[in-house]
């Protein structure tokens, strides 16, 4: 029981459940399909980013550049499609944005893998460099006439209907992108040698290298993969918002990392689960959407989230310290 409670997933799931129960008691209409779909829509982009961040954290690194990378890929793709007049399908936009993300991810991979610089420093540098390059060389104007393919995608719904209370609800097809990213990442992490290598590098870089894991190659893969995912998240975001804003997205990085850490991934590397990560994102999204229902002014949002991070990570750390296990 104590061990079950010491697990972050259990703690986060409990807090999440408590929040949902209390909010539903205060406002019974909270527990409904429209709310669920609203939460999904609001948390979608953050969840895709979080999966990428999880991969980096498991490998013992940290990435703060993914937002700049996503903004770059998203804006460059939209601008190219609009200027060349290729209205294209969403698939083309996804491929282009993912491809640009991959190339930028390789830049991170070069500095981390080949130059062996600390990941925080590298991604701080590329955060500034990518964002600066985007706004200087690509453009800084809002694009509101996004290509038809992207517009159509935002209108494509998996499900739509009206519930008993007369609330309209719909589930955007973009959820499929999240699903695909989750399944693919799960497969890589738990069903391939590559995934085991990522865990091994996060556990101990030195040991991983000594037992013959091609650390540099794996690091290139990690940052390229995160870049691709981020590029895809960026274009999905622009499609759902039906506008490509180059100033969007950047600034989210620490919240996403907080969500992943809340979900049990350890910054020391080697530990982290997809379930935990999704729970962490869900918790932050539910809190953001339920505080007002609970009668707590939205100005309290930061305090609640900050305290949850300290609680969610502090309790397991404190238990680990008390039981004498060294970090």
């Amino acid at each position: 029981m104590a061990r079950l409670f010491a697990r972050n997933e259990t703690l986060v799931a409990t807090i999440l459940l408590l929040f949902i129960i209390v909010t539903s008691i205060v406002d019974p209409s909270f527990l409904s399909v429209p709310t669920l779909f609203d939460l999904l829509r609001n948390g979608l982009i953050m969840a895709i980013f979080a999966i990428g961040v999880l991969l980096v954290l498991i490998s013992g690194g940290i990435d703060v550049s993914f937002t700049a990378l996503a903004a770059f890929a998203m804006y460059a793709t939209t601008k190219t499609l609009v200027e060349t007049g290729v209205e294209g399908s969403m698939a083309l936009a996804l491929a282009m944005s993912g491809g640009i993300g991959l190339c930028l991810g390789l830049v991170n991979g070069f500095f981390v893998g080949t130059m062996r610089l600390p990941t925080l420093i590298v991604t701080l540098g590329t955060l500034s460099a990518f964002r600066g390059a985007l706004l200087t060389f690509v453009g800084s104007q809002l694009i509101s006439n996004v290509p038809d393919g992207m517009r159509d995608f935002s209108r494509t719904m998996l499900l739509r209907g009206t519930n008993a209370d007369g609330y309209f609800y719909s589930l955007p097809a973009a959820v499929l992108v999240l699903l695909l990213v989750v399944v693919l990442t799960w497969f890589i992490l738990y069903r391939t040698m590559l995934g085991r290598n990522i865990f091994a590098i996060g556990g101990s870089l030195d040991s991983a290298r000594r037992i013959g894991i091609p650390v540099t190659k794996v690091q290139y893969f990690i940052y390229a993969y995160v870049g691709t995912i981020s590029g895809i998240a960026g274009i999905v975001h622009a499609s759902l918002a039906r506008v490509a804003n180059p100033f969007d997205i950047v600034g989210l990085e620490l919240s996403v990392i907080a969500a992943v850490v809340l979900g049990g991934a350890r910054l020391q590397g080697g530990t982290g689960t997809i379930t935990g990560t999704l729970l962490g994102v869900a918790l932050i999204v539910v809190i953001n959407n339920s505080l007002i229902t609970l009668g707590i002014p939205s100005t309290w949002q930061n305090i609640v989230i900050g305290l949850l991070i300290l609680l969610g990570t502090g309790v397991p750390a404190w238990q680990a310290r008390r039981s004498g296990r060294t970090e």
């Binding site: 907080a258 930061n302 305090i303 989230i305 900050g306 305290l307 300290l310 990570t313 502090g314």
Partner: peptide
């Protein structure tokens, strides 16, 4: 720790 407290202080 400082990521969490930073958010709380801002809050």
């Amino acid at each position: 720790a400082t990521l969490g407290t930073g958010i709380v202080y801002t809050g």
